[in-house]
Design a protein around this nucleic acid. Structure first.
Length: 301
DNA sequence: CGTTGATCCTGGGCGC
DNA sequence: TGCGCCCAGGATCAAC
């Protein structure tokens, strides 16, 4: 679910509400989602600390308290929402389990694993059906944060000076894997997941099964630009809500209406009318247009 | 070292 | 209605 555009959408929703709030208590109802291997202090040491920053790196959301970072990775089905218990919760949803049809705030349920209560009465709720998501806690300093990103193999960060053509091209060095697999590797470009990988390859007109070693310079440059294009569009439309994604207010994004290939198997390509094909590459569903994304590169003119 | 495949979870959707 | 099966947006680690 949550790739860079979804996490950024959540970040933008949380930041104006969270900055300045003081954490009163933090409750973890399923320890499985906790990873305190790199912590420096106990969870209770967060009590009384004020939130100063809400940032993001790849698919990781980083909440900066006065002395610690609380870091969230939403896995496949993670949701991070704000709730004001003094307001009525929305009810009567079509799918109460996945939360896909949920809008506005909702009450905690058996899939809500972390509850954070703030001094003003608001709650920040972490909910994750499949429990692939994780919550981490670090001492607030640059060095442990960079070490954390290092341990989790985070590569180029889109929309920063970090993401430049030279570094991008270096990612192709000595590699033979398929393009789709390269894009899913967070050590290459951080934040790209299955949906945006397929969309970026369509945008660049590249076949997902092509080997990285077969790309010409111009094709790599197209991919370099295409990744930013599709991520930007995803953010612009508030993220892609295929199943579970909701923003910090519990609302769906609309980027699923803007996709060219993902989830469109058998439907006509929006550019050429050819039916979109779905296949499997490194065990992930992969969608592409066989005409717009030829397996063999077009001959030079 | 690079690459592939199994695995962790739960729910939804489909065919029978 | 129920059951079995397959699928799902991620990341890690063992094994080749």
């Amino acid at each position: 679910m949550p790739e860079l555009p979804e996490v950024e959408t959540i970040r933008r929703g949380l930041e104006p509400h969270l900055v300045g709030l003081t954490l009163q208590s933090l409750t973890v109802t399923d320890q499985k989602v906790l990873d305190l291997s790199a912590r420096d202090g106990t969870l209770s040491s967060l009590e009384g600390q004020r939130i100063e920053t809400v940032t993001r790196r790849g698919k990781y959301l980083v909440i900066g308290f006065e002395r610690h970072y609380l870091i969230f990775h939403l896995g496949m089905t993670g949701q991070l929402t704000l709730r004001d218990p003094r307001r009525p919760d929305a009810t009567g949803f079509e799918r109460t389990i996945t939360g896909l049809e949920w809008c506005e705030q909702h009450a905690p349920d058996r899939h809500t694993h972390v509850h954070i209560l703030f001094g003003n009465g608001w709650q920040l709720l972490f909910r994750d059906i499949r429990k692939f998501g994780r919550v981490y806690m670090l001492r607030r300093a640059l060095e442990p944060l960079l070490a954390f990103f290092e341990v989790h193999h985070l590569g180029l960060e889109p929309f920063t000076s970090d993401y430049n053509l030279k570094a991008f091209l270096a990612g192709f060095k000595n590699r033979t894997l398929r393009l789709k697999s390269l894009l899913l590797n967070q050590a290459f470009v951080a934040g790209v997941g299955n949906i945006y990988a397929d969309e970026a390859l369509f945008e660049a007109g590249l076949h997902p099964a092509r080997r990285t070693s077969s790309l010409r310079r111009a094709e790599k440059e197209r991919l370099f630009l295409a990744i930013q294009t599709v991520l930007e569009r995803g953010i612009e439309f508030g993220g892609t809500s295929f199943r579970d994604f909701v923003n910090s207010e519990g609302e769906k994004g609309t980027n699923q209406e803007k996709l060219f290939v993902y989830g469109r198997e058998g439907e006509q390509c929006l550019k050429c009318g050819t039916p979109i094909v779905k296949t499997v590459i490194s065990q992930r569903g992969t969608h592409f247009c066989p005409k717009c994304q030829p397996r063999r590169p077009a001959r030079l003119p």
